Each structure stands twice: as C-alpha cells, then as structure tokens.
Deep mutational scan, measured.
Amino acid sequence: ETEYTFDDKREADRAAKEAQNNGLRVHVTKDGNRWKVRID
C-alpha cells in the first residue's frame, strides 16, 4: 500500500488513472485542501 499527496486534483486524478490502468486498486480522498491517492 502506497500513499501520495497532491495539491492539485488534476495531478491526483492522473496518478489514480495511471494506477488503475496498471490494474491496481486506487482510493482518492480529500484531506483539507490537498488530495491523497492510496494505492493497494
């Protein structure tokens, strides 16, 4: 399990989409004014 934090939602969405394309499970959550992408 890996977690990334992004300031920009577009960057978070791009990272999530890339991980999904690689067959990974992805969870995107909002943390204040930042975005967390957790990859299982």
Rank of each mutant, 00 (worst) to 15 (best):
K17V: 10
K17A: 13
Q20R: 15
L24F: 14
D7V: 10
Y4L: 13
V26E: 00
A15W: 15
A19G: 04
G32I: 00
F6Q: 01
I39N: 01
D8H: 10
W35V: 00
N21R: 14
E18W: 13
A16L: 05
H27E: 11
A19S: 03
K17N: 09
G23Q: 03
V37A: 00
K17G: 06
N21G: 10
A19R: 03
R10I: 12
E3H: 06
K9V: 08
K17F: 11
A12M: 03
D8Q: 07
E1Y: 15
D7W: 09
K30V: 07
D8P: 01
N21V: 09
V37M: 04
D31G: 02
R38C: 09
N21W: 08
T2W: 15
T5S: 09
H27D: 06
K30M: 09
E1R: 13
E1P: 14
E18M: 12
E18R: 12
N21T: 09
K36R: 13
E3D: 06
A12C: 06
D8R: 08
I39E: 03
K17S: 10
T2E: 10
R38F: 10
R10M: 12
G32C: 03
V37H: 00
F6D: 01
D31C: 14
E3F: 10
A12Y: 01
K17Q: 13
A19T: 02
T2N: 10
L24Q: 07
F6H: 02
G32Q: 03
D40I: 15
D7A: 11
E11G: 06
K17D: 07
R38P: 00
A15Y: 15
K9R: 09
F6V: 03
G23M: 03
T29Q: 09
H27K: 11
T2F: 13
G32H: 03
K30D: 02
Q20K: 11
K36H: 08
D31K: 05
E18Q: 11
E11T: 08
T2C: 15
G32T: 01
R10V: 12
V28G: 00
D31N: 06
R10P: 06
N22W: 05
A16N: 02
R25K: 10
A12Q: 00
R38V: 14
K30H: 09
D7N: 10
D7I: 09
T29D: 05
K17I: 11
Y4S: 05
A15F: 15
T5I: 14
A19L: 15
Y4R: 09
A15I: 13
D8G: 05
D7K: 09
I39R: 01
E18P: 02
R38S: 09
K17W: 12
N21F: 09
D13Q: 11
K36Y: 08
T5P: 02
H27S: 13
F6P: 01
D7S: 11
V26S: 05
Y4N: 04
E3M: 09
G23P: 01
D40P: 04
A12E: 00
E18C: 15
R38D: 02
K17L: 13
D7F: 11
N22T: 07
A16T: 04
E11N: 06
V26N: 01
K9L: 08
N22G: 07
Q20L: 13
R10H: 12
R10K: 12
A19E: 02
K30Q: 12
G23R: 04
R38W: 10
A12H: 00
D40A: 12
H27Q: 12
K30R: 12
R10Q: 13
I39C: 10
G23A: 03
A15E: 03
R34V: 08
D7P: 05
R38M: 09
L24T: 03
R34Q: 11
A19Q: 04
T5D: 05
N21Q: 13
E18H: 11
F6C: 05
R25E: 07
W35N: 00
N33R: 05
E11V: 06
I39W: 05
R38H: 10
L24P: 01
A15V: 15
R34N: 06
T29C: 14
I39A: 03
D7R: 08
R25S: 09
F6L: 02
G23F: 03
V28Q: 03
H27G: 04
K9T: 02
T5Y: 15
D13I: 15
V28D: 00
